[in-house]
Amino acid sequence: MVFTSRAGGVSSSPYGSFNLGTHVGDNPEDVAANRARLTRVLDLPDIVYMEQLHTNTVTVIDGPQDGPVEATDALVTTTPNLGLAVLVADCVPVLLSDHAAGVVAAAHAGRMGARNGIVRNTVSTMVELGATPANIQVLLGPAASGRHYEVPADMAADVEAHLPGSRTKTTKGTPGIDVRAGLVRQLLSLGVTNIEADPRCTIEDEAFFSYRREGTTGRQAGVIWLNHPKES
């Protein structure tokens, strides 16, 4: 499991420098170079990306793809050495693994996807492939924190109704959402207890791309893969 930052790539401002998103207006050749560098550094034969649309759709894949997997916000695989990538710039990148069962997943949990159950659906799909909730390890990456993720009061109430534990107040005292907090509570309710969360806030930490802070900006990634074939 790894999370990238905005450092170490070839993209120019406002995408400087390790932008991995092809949909944000960056030079395609620079993005391709950054993605090739990531694949090389991680020593993986291939990394699969998604066409993320803030859905709750989960897709199981068994090998390299011809382009991004369309209209999905989570990928699950049992194939060794196949990287699964989730791109973010404030949304929560969620990486999940049950290495005993040989199942890993990457999920894009933005406000809408988290509200509508993308992580719950991802866990369910992993279980269908042999994973056990008690054995699933989860890492939530850098994302917009409740300290700075300001939303209208009715939106905060709506998300709270679907993802309990997510409603909060920002440092300004205004209604806010802490998606990671809501996801932790949801995961616990599913029997997933091995959870770690990177506390860094993408809105306040300029080491990361942040759509809320910058508008036009790049995307960092969370990447997960199975190191070894599933044991028989």
Results as ranks from 00 to 15, higher is better:
V10I: 11
S11C: 15
S12A: 15
P14M: 05
G16I: 06
T22C: 06
N34M: 01
N34V: 02
L38T: 05
V48L: 04
L53T: 14
L53V: 12
L53C: 04
N56G: 02
T59H: 03
G67A: 09
P68L: 10
A71Y: 14
A74S: 12
V76S: 07
T77L: 01
L82K: 06
A85C: 08
V86P: 01
L87K: 08
V88A: 07
C91D: 14
P93Y: 06
S97D: 07
G102N: 07
A105V: 02
G113Q: 06
G113W: 01
I118V: 15
I118S: 02
R120K: 15
T122R: 04
M126T: 09
M126H: 08
M126A: 05
T132K: 12
A134M: 04
N135L: 10
N135K: 11
V138P: 02
L140Y: 06
L140D: 02
L140F: 11
A143F: 05
A143N: 11
A143L: 09
A144Q: 06
S145Q: 04
H148Q: 10
D154E: 15
M155V: 15
A157T: 12
A157R: 13
V159L: 10
L163H: 06
G165D: 03
R167K: 14
K169N: 04
P175M: 11
G176M: 05
D178G: 01
V179Y: 03
L183K: 08
Q186P: 00
L187K: 07
N194A: 10
A197N: 04
D198K: 13
E204S: 15
D205G: 01
R213N: 01
E214N: 14
E214H: 12
G215V: 09
T217L: 06
Q220I: 07
Q220W: 12
I224M: 08
N227L: 13
N227C: 00
N227G: 15
N227F: 09
H228T: 15
K230A: 15
E231P: 02
